[in-house]
Design a protein around this nucleic acid. Structure first.
Length: 350
DNA sequence: AAAATCCGCAACCGCGGTCCC
DNA sequence: GGGGACCGCGGTTGCGGATTT
């Protein structure tokens, strides 16, 4: 593409000679004003084209060659936090340009995440974004034995109490709970939720006086509603305390929580969760993409109520595909009404 | 072997922010 | 404060090589 545009300046691919002229000039004089540079250097290009050529290709500190696995992982991690802030991401990878990273993302990494079942925008399992209502109905009906008089869907800690009445096979349904917890706490959009869940020990869940028992008791006493689950540091503190107690009483090494991961890898790995042998929570309806509005408000309230600090990642992507049906109705009564309507079996409220 | 299609990447474009007069 | 010049960013385009039909 050698044709000139109306201003007479050349566009399109750079020749080796043009590259040489540009490099020679900048090495001797610096680039100074990009706008003035082409005239001073004797190039028939616009300043913008020169700047782009230099920063993306000719700069001496440009790193050539394929991206390493470590670099790719770093880009994915940074993108999860920063989004399409390519220049900011590039600042963390010496020798790589924003353009190069952007191209890598659009050609490789985006597909990679999709193949892993993750949404390339939110970095979360795609199924979570499809239909929260269906998720909740499925979850709660799975966890709610009809003959359990203590069932109270208003409070997630009551749901957790219910878990202790479940048979081992029903405990498999915990992975549904994990999905709910993710929905509620995912505003952090970080590994925090995963880190919170990782130390849970499945064996302990079914034993009276277990870690979960104490956890639930303390949580119930301290706060008494499901919002407490968003206080990750609080729960982590309780878990840590419990581990210390266990160590003292049983002279056992502190568990790193890996036991549960062996049984239920979905708790620590959203990808594994998405591909779990358990049935999918929702049917894929990817084109249903209503606005986040009031659910985001509720989510922000849930996440921020303990320290009042807005989480920067709460305001955008994670819930952008959730439903308008939450509008102005994100209350406990609303949930009860909604679930009652959706379920053949009315909820038994104690 | 040739045509069609896919894919990667360099380069361009438009816009918003900052600086300076 | 306003307006123009300049810069840098993110999105998009289109060329050319690779792959598929």
């Amino acid at each position: 593409m050698e044709s000139d545009n109306e201003s007479g300046l050349k566009k399109g691919p750079w020749t080796a000679e043009e590259d040489r002229i540009l490099v020679d000039y900048i090495e001797k004089n610096g680039h100074g004003s990009w706008r003035a540079l082409p005239k001073l250097a004797g190039l028939n290009r616009c300043g913008k084209s020169c700047r782009l050529r230099w920063t993306n290709y000719l700069r001496p500190d440009i790193k050539r060659g394929n991206f390493s696995d470590q670099e790719q992982q770093l880009i994915i991690n940074l993108h999860a936090v920063l989004g399409n802030k390519w220049s900011t991401i590039a600042a963390h990878l010496p020798g790589r340009t924003d353009n190069e990273i952007k191209n890598l993302w659009n050609t490789h990494l985006k597909k990679k995440l999709l193949q892993m079942g993750l949404d390339p925008v939110t970095h979360r399992p795609r199924s979570q974004q499809l239909n929260l209502l269906s998720n909740l109905q499925h979850l709660l009906s799975s966890l709610s034995p009809n003959n359990n008089p203590n069932y109270n869907h208003h409070h997630l800690d009551n749901i957790l109490n219910t878990i202790q009445t479940l048979s081992p096979s029903q405990l498999a349904k915990l992975h549904l709970l994990h999905n709910l917890i993710q929905v509620l706490a995912t505003a952090s959009a970080t590994a925090a939720t995963t880190n919170l869940l990782a130390p849970f020990n499945l064996d302990a869940l079914v034993n009276p006086g277990s870690m979960m028992d104490q956890l639930l008791l303390q949580e119930h006493q301290n706060i008494g509603n499901f919002h407490s689950l968003s206080n990750l540091s609080n729960v982590e503190g309780l878990l840590h305390h419990h581990h210390q107690q266990q160590q003292q009483q049983q002279h056992l090494p502190v568990s790193d929580g890996l036991e549960l991961l062996k049984v239920m890898p979905c708790l620590a790995d959203p990808v594994a969760s998405a591909s779990s042998s358990l049935p999918n929570l929702v049917s894929p309806t990817p084109d249903c993409s209503p606005s986040p509005s009031s659910f985001n408000k509720m989510k922000d309230k849930v996440i921020n109520q303990n320290d009042g600090t807005p989480n920067p990642s709460t305001s955008t992507s994670t819930f952008d595909t959730l439903g308008d049906f939450m509008d102005e109705q994100a209350s406990e009564a609303f949930w009860k009404h909604l679930i009652d309507q959706e379920s053949n079996q009315p909820w038994s409220i104690s």
